[in-house]
């Protein structure tokens, strides 16, 4: 146990964290590019057209990974906020600070790609559906967190207030995820993140999983790059 604690405190020390990032950053970038290339090639050129939607369903290969990332970035931020509030670990605050604009962009892109998919399939770019509305609220939460960070001049106070607001905003995450189950929505129900096997053909599922991994690695690479900058200050 003391050995584990020592290893943990070594990892969260700025010097070792920067060293860890330098060591793995390139590997993460290469893995990200491989996943995205595989996903794009198979998703756009090899996977067959959908029998109902035709080719337009291929927007799924950017829309679904972005939607998953918009939620998982917020989960990471909430965990970091919790760790920062309880143990006052500065790196956790840095990760939360870096993640907020990335998450906001992912969420805005989720809504954009969703509307690009909605127009040819539903006949409208936007509808006040539970899933779409809760995702829009998520963008506003991200923007509020970024605004609070820059509005408060005292850095320590800004970090604490942002952590509390992040934890309060986390209530929206299960609402976004379960909105399609709790309410009768135009947006389809879950096809991958659900109990039982995914209801999607394997040839369409593989590139989607590769894209999800690619977008996660892209987020990881961005966090590593910006964290290294923050640590060198």
């Amino acid at each position: 146990m003391p050995h584990r604690t020592a290893a943990f405190s070594k990892l969260i020390s700025p010097k070792h964290c920067a060293h860890f990032i330098s060591r793995y950053q390139k590997i993460v970038l290469i893995a990200c590019m491989i996943c995205l290339l595989y996903g794009l090639i198979v998703g756009l050129f090899i996977a067959p057209a959908d029998y109902q939607q035709g080719n337009v369903y291929r927007i799924m290969y950017v829309h679904v990974p972005l939607a998953i990332q918009s939620l998982s970035v917020y989960v990471v931020m909430s965990l970091c906020a919790f760790i920062f509030l309880i143990w006052k670990i500065k790196i956790a605050d840095f990760v939360a600070k870096i993640s907020a604009p990335i998450g906001a962009v992912f969420t805005a892109l989720t809504l954009f790609t969703g509307s690009m998919w909605g127009k040819p399939t539903w006949g409208t770019y936007w509808i006040w559906d539970a899933r779409l509305t809760s995702e829009l609220i998520l963008v506003f939460i991200y923007i509020a967190i970024i605004a609070i960070r820059y509005a408060i001049i005292d850095d320590r106070l800004a970090s604490r207030v942002c952590a509390v607001v992040t934890l309060l905003g986390a209530i929206n995450i299960p609402i976004v995820h379960y909105s399609v189950i709790w309410w009768n929505t135009l947006h389809q129900g879950p096809s991958i993140l659900k109990i039982g096997a995914p209801s999607i053909a394997p040839i369409m599922l593989h590139p989607l999983l590769a894209m999800i991994a690619g977008f996660f690695l892209y987020y990881l690479f961005l966090v590593m790059t910006e964290l290294k900058t923050e640590l060198s200050r």
Binding site: R58, T113, M116, T229
Partner: peptide, 30 residues
Amino acid sequence: MIFICVAYSVVFAVMIIQLIFALKKKSRHE
């Protein structure tokens, strides 16, 4: 087809801009 092109080009353009900003910030500090 137009919707796929618009969606993919906007997403990847934003991602590349985001990446350039992060790398620029890093190089400015080094």
